[in-house]
C-alpha cells in the first residue's frame, strides 16, 4: 500500500545569482514499512526533498511552485500550518546528519523527548516519563532512567544520534526521513545506529527514506533506491535490480566506477564533468553534458519517466 507519493514536485530558491530550480519535477512513492534509499551527489537535492515532505523549506527564499505530496491519501501541500505541526514528529519524523548540532544544548535529552510526547500524545504510553524511558531504552541507551537527565554534551556522538532517533520515534510515526544519519559518526558506531533504525522500523512498521552517499549502506539497508541527479530523479528500482542491471547512463557510470559497493560516492570523481548549477541548468536532460550516450534529442527535450516494468523507472531518452 502506498504511504507517500510525490508527484511532479518543483522547488525553487531565490538566490543572488537568480532563480534556482532545485527540484525539477520529481516523482516517487514509498510503500508502508518499506525502506527507500535516496542517493546522489552533493547538492542534487536530497535534503530539500526530505524537508519538502515536512514542509520545512524556508520560505522565502524557497518555494514549492508545483506538484503534490500525498501522504496517507492527503495532499500535504494543502495542509494548514497547524495541521502540519501535528503531522511533524507525530506521523512523519526526520533526523539529521550531525547529532552534535541537532539537539538543543540547554535542555536534557529527557526533556526534549518529553516535549515530543506531550505534544503528540502517542497511544499506549502510560505517562510521559515512561514514554521517555521506553524511547531511550528502545535505542539501546543503557540506564535510560538516569541518562534521561543528561544534557546532549554529556552524550557521545553515536548516543546523541540514538537520542535523536528516540525523540523522533517516541510518537510512533509511520514515516521516518533519515538525512544521512551516520555520515557525521565514527565508522565504529555507524552500523549500530543503522541497526537501531532497522529494529524500530520493524517494530513500528514504519517506512524509511534513507538519504545517503554510501552505496554500501544502500545495498545493506534499502528495499528500493532512487538515484537523484541535479534536481531530477534519474532512476528508481529495487536494490538488487539497480545494482545488477542499471539502466540510466548516470547510474551505470556510478556503479561501473565503483568496484565494490561500499564506497562513498562523493569520494570518487567517477564521472567526468561537474554537477550543473541550478540557476542555468543544461536544457533537455540535465545530465547531457556529462553523458557519453547523449543524443540530439537529449539537448532539447527533458526525458520523461519510463516504466520498464516491475517498478523499474528510468528517466532517459534511450528508453523512450
Amino acid at each position: 500500500m502506498t504511504l507517500l507519493e510525490i508527484k511532479n514536485l518543483h522547488l525553487q530558491f531565490q538566490s543572488d545569482e537568480g532563480l534556482a530550480l532545485v527540484l525539477d519535477g520529481i516523482n516517487f512513492d514509498i510503500k508502508k514499512g518499506e525502506t527507500l534509499g535516496l542517493v546522489g551527489e552533493s547538492g542534487c537535492g536530497k535534503s530539500v526533498t526530505g524537508l519538502s515532505v515536512l514542509r520545512l523549506i524556508p520560505t522565502p527564499p524557497g518555494e514549492i511552485t508545483e506538484g503534490e505530496i500525498i501522504f496517507e491519501g492527503e495532499n500535504l501541500l494543502e495542509k494548514s500550518a497547524k495541521e502540519m505541526q501535528n503531522i511533524r514528529g507525530g506521523r512523519i519524523a526526520m533526523i539529521f546528519q550531525d547529532p552534535m548540532v541537532s539537539l538543543n544544548p540547554v535542555y536534557t535529552i529527557g526533556d526534549q523527548i518529553a516535549e515530543a510526547i506531550d505534544l503528540h500524545q502517542p497511544k499506549g504510553i502510560t505517562s510521559t516519563w515512561d514514554g521517555v524511558v521506553e524511547a531511550l531504552d528502545s535505542v539501546q541507551i543503557a540506564d535510560p532512567e538516569s541518562r534521561a537527565h543528561n544534557y546532549p554534551h554529556q552524550f557521545s556522538g553515536g548516543m546523541r544520534q540514538r537520542g535523536m532517533i528516540a525523540m523522533m520515534l517516541s510518537c510512533r510515526p509511520s514515516l521516518l526521513i533519515a538525512d544521512e544519519p551516520t555520515t557525521a559518526l565514527d565508522v565504529t558506531v555507524q552500523a549500530q545506529v543503522l541497526q537501531v533504525i532497522a529494529d524500530l522500523q520493524k517494530e513500528l512498521g514504519m517506512a524509511v527514506i534513507l538519504i545517503t552517499h554510501n552505496l554500501g549502506v544502500v545495498a545493506e539497508s534499502c528495499d528500493r533506491v532512487a538515484v537523484m541527479y541535479a534536481g531530477t530523479i534519474a532512476e528508481i528500482a529495487d536494490v538488487e535490480k539497480l545494482f545488477e542491471n542499471p539502466k540510466h547512463p548516470y547510474t551505470r557510470g556510478l556503479l561501473g566506477a565503483i568496484p565494490r559497493a561500499d564506497r562513498d560516492m562523493n569520494d570518487l570523481a567517477i564521472i567526468e564533468g561537474s554537477v550543473p548549477n541550478h540557476v542555468n541548468p543544461p536544457k533537455g536532460c540535465r545530465f547531457h553534458p556529462r553523458c557519453k550516450e547523449a543524443m540530439d534529442i537529449c539537448r532539447i527535450e527533458k526525458p520523461t519517466d519510463v516504466d520498464l516494468g516491475e517498478d523499474h523507472i528510468v528517466a532517459c531518452h534511450l528508453y523512450g
Partner: peptide
C-alpha cells in the same frame, strides 16, 4: 539558524 531549531520544527513544535 541553528540545526536544533530545525529539529524543534521537525518535532511539530509551534513557531
Amino acid at each position: 539558524r541553528e540545526e536544533y531549531s530545525l529539529t524543534a520544527r521537525a518535532k511539530g513544535i509551534s513557531e
